Computed example of a mutant assay.
Amino acid sequence: MYRYDDEKEQAPARSERFYEVDGEWFFAVRKGPDRGPFVSKEAAHAALRTYIVEQLAEEKHRRPAGRRFFLRSLSEREEG
């Protein structure tokens, strides 16, 4: 909450995940270096989809056996 005389901070600028350098396309990821080059933005999009699927599979493989995630809230779990 701000007081009327407080300076308001600007939200950090969001950058595009995809970018072009000298006619070649790349995409940025949080873990590790950016990926590319790709011949087109569409090719970079396709590679990003593949990257996401691979990352999700790797995370699933590393998850301890028997660990489950619930979409119910904690209060519902406590009651039931």
Rank of each mutant, 00 (worst) to 15 (best):
H45F: 11
P64E: 08
R3F: 13
F70V: 08
Y19R: 03
D5F: 11
R30M: 12
R3D: 10
R30C: 10
F26W: 15
A28T: 15
F69P: 03
Y2C: 02
R17K: 14
E9Q: 11
K8F: 04
G32R: 01
A46L: 09
A44Q: 02
E59I: 05
A11C: 08
D5M: 11
A11H: 10
F69C: 12
E54I: 06
E79Y: 00
A43K: 03
S15K: 14
D6V: 01
E59H: 05
D6W: 03
A46H: 03
V53E: 14
P33M: 00
R30T: 14
R67S: 09
H61Q: 15
L71P: 10
A46G: 03
M1T: 12
L71G: 15
M1A: 13
M1W: 07
E20H: 02
D5R: 10
K31E: 15
S40N: 05
R3T: 12
E7V: 10
A28L: 12
H61S: 15
S75T: 12
Q55F: 07
A11G: 11
G32P: 05
R63E: 12
R30V: 10
R63Q: 12
R72S: 09
P37W: 01
E58W: 07
K31S: 13
R30Y: 13
W25S: 09
G80C: 07
E79L: 06
P12S: 07
K31D: 14
E7R: 11
S40L: 05
Y51T: 00
P12H: 01
S75Y: 06
V39R: 15
A47I: 00
F27E: 05
M1F: 11
E20D: 14
E16V: 07
F38R: 00
R17Q: 09
R67W: 15
A43G: 01
A43N: 11
A65K: 09
R72I: 05
R62D: 12
R77N: 04
F38K: 06
V21M: 09
H61R: 15
E76Y: 00
L71Q: 13
Y2E: 02
R77A: 07
V29N: 00
F70G: 03
R35C: 10
E24R: 13
V53H: 08
A43W: 04
W25H: 12
R14P: 00
G36H: 02
K8G: 00
G66K: 01
A65R: 12
R35F: 02
E54F: 01
P12Y: 03
P37Y: 06
G32K: 00
G36N: 05
